[in-house]
Design a protein around this nucleic acid. Structure first.
Lengths: 252, 252
DNA sequence: CGACACTTTGAAGACGATCAACGCCGGTGG
DNA sequence: CCACCGGCGTTGATCGTCTTCAAAGTGTCG
């Protein structure tokens, strides 16, 4: 019975917000909890999509390999986040477009793809899933935008700032939760570029020594980041843009 | 009564697939149809998000302006597609992150944001919306990936190929449905880069003269494009990747 | 201890952005 | 009817940034 194992984790999952304990228990009845060790593959690129996953503890990396053998990290999934939310809706005919690999030892809640139809019958769950997927879509949109508008140092600063908000880190000093290589890959840049980027971040009040990150001046960082960033609900000053005059733009 | 105006368009909307005419009529009762002329703004960046939109005829461009006054096209929305699907779930507290401008004269089905809660109570609609949002998220994911892995000519070829599939164009010659400038902006590149890219596409069996596009050899184009592309359901040979061996990848 | 991956730095190269100039077309107004 | 204007599209030259290749130091794990 999964609820025994992670009662507090599961209760706090965004997906189950506003849902009564009885309903949660019912929704969990079809699920199972699985353990994975660092380096284990949750699924392969090319496998049929059979499950919907919620990461309870640990971290996963989803990646894709290009025909020429290169690896592209598409996402880093931390505890509380879901996987396959964009692929599961094509089941049972879809195949995984990415592979998922445990970065740390991890535990995962797994639901069969058939569970979804049932879950959607609960309107609160339906809205929660929709909210999660749309939030994810929006994040991907913004990051795609960043790739075309921001320099490497700016992207790194933006990523560190979001990491700081997401994990509620202490700005006066926190440890990177995973390797620089993974972050670089996640941001779509080479490790060398990432390395050079962080050495240029001192000008913006960010010091990085090994895995230790210090925001010397959080406000300065936020100013720098938010001028170019607008992930609502993740970027605290996004609302600053609300009163920009949109009429300045040249429409085509 | 909107159903009078576009019965065939509405019946064919993916959002309403599998839903009975009575239910559709009920869902449409809260909606209204609006007309827009070329250049009209549907909403402004910064406005509160109050509606969910389905484009019935015509085309819209969603774009964002950066603090330094540049314009970024985030999406081109053709008939049958929806708008605000990633923003509406934060209503009524969210503001539009983009502006929407009619590229052609257009008609739009508009739903108040409160409609969503009601619509989700219909499980088929809930799954259809989820499917639409997740499909959109996947497309954004893939395009973000392309930005880091493909050259400008490759991206253009991929875009033209998807356009050809989406609009069911004749490969032996079709007309670009909107300006090159808009396509370039949509792909996150400068008009100059786009122009240089299309002149290099002859090597891959694509000829472009003015607004006329010819795929001299569709198979060659698909080979070229699909080696780097995997938008399931839009790229016909995506399944080719299903039997790639994922174990070749170096996991971190 | 040795192998291996990670990280950093340097130097060279490729690619796209930028600036500038020009031809083209559609619309406006005289 | 024509002159003018503005936006579009193309081409050339230059510049900045990221990637690539190479090398060396560091740390970890077996």
């Amino acid at each position: 019975m999964p609820t025994r194992l992670f009662p507090e984790v599961i209760r706090n999952l965004k997906l189950f917000q506003g849902v009564s304990p009885d309903e949660i228990a019912d929704l969990l009845s079809e699920s199972r909890v699985c353990w994975y060790k660092r380096g284990d593959l949750l699924f392969h690129q090319g496998d049929p999509v059979l499950h919907f996953y919620i990461v309870c503890t640990g971290t996963f990396e989803t990646f894709k390999q290009t025909p020429d053998g290169k690896k592209i990290t598409t996402d880093v999934v931390v505890a509380g986040k879901t996987m396959c939310k964009t692929e599961i809706f094509k089941s049972p005919f879809a195949t995984h477009q990415v592979s998922a690999c445990a970065v740390n030892d991890a535990t995962v809640l797994e639901f069969p793809y058939t569970w979804l139809k049932k879950a959607v019958e609960n309107h609160t769950i339906a809205l929660n899933i929709l909210s999660a997927v749309s939030h994810y879509a929006h994040m991907v949109e913004v990051e795609a935008e960043h790739k075309t508008t921001m320099s490497a140092p700016q992207q790194v600063a933006c990523f560190l700032h979001r990491m700081y908000l997401l994990h509620d880190f202490n700005p006066k000093g926190f440890t990177l939760p995973y390797s620089k290589r993974l972050i670089a890959s996640r941001l779509g840049m080479e490790p060398e570029t990432f390395s050079r980027a962080i050495s240029r971040l001192r000008e913006y009040g960010i010091t990085i020594n090994g895995n230790q990150v210090i925001f010397n001046d959080v406000q300065k960082v936020e100013q720098y980041v938010c001028e170019h960033c607008s992930i609502v609900g993740e970027c605290s000053q996004a609302k600053m843009h609300a009163d920009l005059d949109p009429r300045k733009v040249h429409t085509s």
